[in-house]
């Protein structure tokens, strides 16, 4: 317990130092949280190379927003909210032109690529879900957000969020059963 308290204490100091502009302190925060952020971002993106860029974008924006952290919530909770916001905003921005020009209107489902060896079976199915369905599933089933929060975050109705979660569960179970057969 004492060790935990000490690490939290160190983290508080690093947050304060990073807010004051200390890049080394920010790097320590990055090292503590990059795994968690990467998992979240990868699942939201459904694409490894895009996730790398997005994680960098998250931490760059986090640096810019650090001064807004007031300590009302845990740092990890606040970081999670920032990461979700940044990722979804960027994804929606990119999706508009990407679909129009590169994919020329075709809905191409992301396949789990050959670099997916370290992904859990569930993650591999998550990667195959359509965008909005995947976002809802990740936020609701894996990140524990409420449908009201998800609806607000994605700009959709609460009913749509519930329907997308239901669809995601159905698709994942269908794929799992197909693979097991």
């Amino acid at each position: 317990m004492q060790q935990l308290d000490t690490s939290v204490d160190h983290e508080d100091k690093d947050i304060a130092r990073a807010i004051a502009g200390d890049v080394n302190a920010f790097q320590r925060l990055y090292q503590t949280y990059v795994g968690k952020v990467y998992g979240l971002v990868l699942r939201l993106c459904g694409d490894r190379s895009q996730a790398d860029d997005m994680v960098q974008e998250v931490f760059i924006q986090l640096w810019q927003k650090l001064a807004n952290f007031r300590g009302d919530s845990k740092f990890s909770t606040w970081l999670h909210a920032v990461a979700t916001n940044v990722t979804l905003t960027e994804l929606r921005k990119q999706k508009r032109w990407y679909q129009r020009i590169i994919k020329a209107g075709q809905q191409v489902q992301q396949e789990a690529d050959s670099g997916a060896m370290d992904l859990s079976e569930l993650d591999r199915y998550v990667m195959k879900l359509p965008d909005q369905t995947r976002w809802v599933f990740v936020l609701a089933a894996l990140e524990g957000m409420r449908h009201e929060e998800i609806a607000d975050q994605l700009g959709i109705a609460v009913g749509t969020s519930k329907a997308q979660l239901h669809r995601a569960k159905q698709l994942i179970e269908e794929w799992a059963n197909h693979d097991a057969a």
Binding site: Q27, G35, W63
Partner: peptide
């Protein structure tokens, strides 16, 4: 948990240096 395939910090650090925080 899955981990990034490459070191992402160097790109972040470079951007931080280029865009310092307000304060």
């Amino acid at each position: 948990a899955p981990a990034p395939n490459k070191d992402l910090w160097q790109g972040i650090e470079h951007a931080l240096v280029r865009q310092p925080q307000g304060k």
